[in-house]
Design a protein around this nucleic acid. Structure first.
Length: 459
RNA sequence: UCCCCAGUAGCUCAGUUGGCAGAGCAAUUGGCUGUUAACCAAUGGGUCCGCGGUUCAAGUCCGUGCUGGGGAGCCA
């Protein structure tokens, strides 16, 4: 008989008769004459209830079944006389595939997130992490679906890069040099290295995406990104996934429109495709989740300039640890105030002073600010960071000179402004941060399968 | 990297002015009426994070290191 997945069985209207299910035992409840087994196969949050009577030939073996044991069960799908489930399977045959010994670390109780991180290879077997990683999979799919519908092309940007100044933080060096040789020579001889020059893991696919936007029109990259920053917070990891749309003939406002449409689309997709998993997050992670989802779906995001934000912050009676000053970047407490207390919605912040932003952002007509945009969301902080790009060659070169960037290394980037340059815009959205917002999970380490953080790369 | 907090049974934690190491859950064994993290009973289980110090005596006080968490900076 062919195996049927549990999510399929539980959604059936009438019984197909005998079925074969395969999965892992979540819990066993014994009585004198029989026992109940809760089987989960990862296809959905719910378990299916199996009843094993003591007339089964291998009942003595069945009695040794522990939490975590893998089994194959045959029996008719039957209406359950008990409360709590529509269907159950009175077993005619139970094949124990592999027993989990008593040392199996997952128990029939709630574990702390900190403990589960130490067994990250087993945590997807729990309800919460199973739900989280099913949702992560569904959201990755939804991103591609959205961009397919919007007529975008998917760009797989390189992960190893030769440009050393993508401008988004410390990079991980990529080298094939022998550490012994480096030690003997007292330095790294990059001319002898694999690429004949310094190379690093990418911190952003943006520069590649710009080149392709100016060829294919609207493109997006979606893939892993690496930051060697020594960041120890609940919102940073060294390896994370980032979505980066880049759109030709697009200004900052249109870019914001796109970002808002994107966030609303993905949120709606999560609610429609993963209602059970989303309900679990409301019950066990964040009771205020429905309210936040409702705001995401139904409220227009606020949009203000950096200058207006400074004004709002200065006129508020709120006491901040850090002073609010025009010209300095906003502190976390300022961003939180704007998103969580003042607007109580996600808020786009635009037009920052050029001194605190990278070289590629378009200089505004005031000559002082650039067409940058951050999307600040309650609880998370910065979800999206982007800009309209500087498309004017002379202005761009000026900016690079101001910031002492090695122009010759960017010859190919500057070429895009030499040959048919057009206004274009784009942004980066942290995939994990989006998942945090959607689930209420407060630590980024818990929405990525195997988190990489300073001093920690187990699994 | 900086500031703060924590580390005691497999897990979650309690442990009083420094004086015999504790609970709940889990596990094991047995019981049980269709149970829903089933229930009832019994049993086993400890490098009190490591190192050093103070003391008659340290889980408890002091120093230091490690690990984890919260916050800040950097950012997505």
């Amino acid at each position: 008989m062919e195996r049927t997945k549990i999510n399929v069985l539980l959604n059936l209207e009438k019984t197909p008769g005998p079925v074969l299910i395969k999965g892992w035992v979540r819990t066993k409840r014994d009585s004198k004459e029989f026992c109940f087994l809760e089987i989960n196969d990862g296809s959905c949050l719910k378990n299916i209830q199996v009843i094993a009577q003591n007339d089964l030939a291998n009942y003595p073996d069945i009695q040794t079944i522990t939490t975590g044991t893998s089994v194959a069960v045959t029996g008719p799908l039957s209406p359950s006389p008990g409360k709590g489930q529509k269907w159950e399977v009175p077993a005619t045959d139970i094949d124990i595939i592999s027993l989990a010994p008593e040392s199996y670390p997952l128990q029939k109780k709630r574990h702390s997130d900190e403990f589960l991180r130490t067994i990250a290879h087993l945590r997807p077997r729990t309800n919460k992490y199973g739900a989280g990683f099913r949702l992560r999979s569904e959201m990755a799919f939804a991103i591609h679906k959205f961009y397919k519908e919007q007529g975008f092309r998917y760009l797989t940007a390189p992960l190893i890069t030769g440009s050393d100044c993508e401008g988004a933080g410390e990079m991980f060096r990529v080298t094939s040099l022998d550490p012994k040789t480096v030690k003997e020579q007292g330095k790294m001889d990059f001319t002898a290295d694999f690429f004949g020059q310094e190379s690093n893991l990418t911190v952003s696919g943006q520069l590649s995406a710009e080149m392709f936007a100016l060829a294919l029109g609207d493109v997006y990259t979606f893939g892993p990104t690496f930051r060697a920053e020594n960041s120890n917070t609940s919102r940073h990891v060294a390896e994370f996934w980032m979505l980066e749309p880049e759109m030709a003939f697009c200004d900052l406002k249109e870019s914001m429109d796109h970002g808002e449409t994107l966030v609303k689309y993905l949120t709606r997709h999560a609610m429609e495709e993963c209602p059970e998993d989303m309900a679990l997050f409301t019950s066990f992670v964040d009771k205020s989740l429905p309210k936040r989802i409702d705001t995401l779906l139904n409220t227009p995001f606020a949009r203000i300039s950096y200058t207006q934000a400074i004004d709002i912050l200065q006129k508020s009676n709120k006491k901040f640890d850090f002073k609010v000053d025009y010209g300095t970047d906003l502190q976390s407490e300022h961003e939180r105030f704007l998103a969580e207390e003042y607007f109580k919605t996600p808020v786009f912040l635009t037009d920052y002073p050029k001194e605190i932003k990278p070289f590629y952002m378009r200089v505004n007509d005031d000559g002082k600010t650039v067409a940058a945009v951050d999307l600040l969301v309650p609880q998370i902080g910065e979800l999206i960071g982007g800009s309209q790009r500087e498309e004017r060659l002379a202005v761009l070169k000026n900016r690079m000179a101001e910031m002492n960037l090695p122009m010759e290394k960017y010859w190919w980037y500057l070429d895009s402004r030499r040959f048919g340059s057009v206004p274009h815009s784009g942004f980066g959205m942290g995939f994990e941060r989006f998942l945090m917002m959607l689930t209420g999970i407060s630590n980024i380490r818990d929405v990525i399968p195997f988190p990489r953080t300073p001093g920690s790369i187990d699994f």
